[in-house]
Amino acid sequence: MNRSAWGGVGFTLPALLWILLFFIGPVLLMVAASLHPLTAAGVPSPQWGLGAYRAFFSQPAYVQALIDSVVTTIVVTVLSTVISYPFAWSIACVVPARWQRLALIMAILPFWTSYVVRSYAWLLAISPVGLVNKALLALHLIHRPLMLAYNPHATELGFVHFFLMLNTLTIYASLKQINPRYELAARDLGASSWRAFFGITLPLSMPGVATGAFLTIVLTIGDYVTPQILGGFRQLLLPQLIMMQIQRQLDLASASAMSLILTAIVALAYLGLQRWLRLSRL
């Protein structure tokens, strides 16, 4: 290595050390903690063992929470992508160029409401005495308030609202990077506008779709606030179980094991979407 290379390493070193010391190190400690399951006395066992993982997979309620978490994440990811794509496309291709920036800013403005407050605001909107029910009653569309809050669909609603904004942003950015001449060329060669869209525009916008989808998966599967406020208690998701391990059982070994299982699912999603992902170009 020449002198210049060492200089470059010097500049990147503080950031690398920070990640190593405060992210990779702690995660390795978590792995170690998860391999020392609690004994009957409630202290970490001195022996290494897979007890925490075995306990997780032998509890039907825990496995159900894992399945529910994965299903919720898939539903939320698919819905937010499908709803946001036409929205982003409309902003990029229908709205006149000079208004696009404003249209996009408006589309992601509520993104900046406080994270905890956003779920609370949805709770207010869809509660039996909330604005949505009051409006539907006033319009005589319903006769009794609908029970919209405190169920798994309310959780999905809260998530889809948030990720609709995020995906609109990533898909819009991807659509704007496509050279419009490609589609014109396809049209000149006789493709219908549908064929040009599905043959040219859609494949070229996949990086935006995949980036948005991946962020949706990461942030949905690890979220505790939205299901806790909107979801009610009939269905618990994995992060809620993890919190219960920490707060009620004081069982860091199980909580670590569950967090690592959750991370393994995120890693699978990453591998699946990898060929399109452009995380550094957000």
Binding site: A15, P26, I242
Partner: peptide
């Protein structure tokens, strides 16, 4: 190097928070 620095963007806040909690308690 870029991959290592960008790594936390691909994990949930829960993992970082849990990692720090476990480390602090250790």
């Amino acid at each position: 190097i870029r991959g290592i620095i960008m790594l936390p963007m691909a994990v949930s806040y829960l993992l970082v928070g849990m990692g720090l909690l476990v480390s602090a308690s250790a």
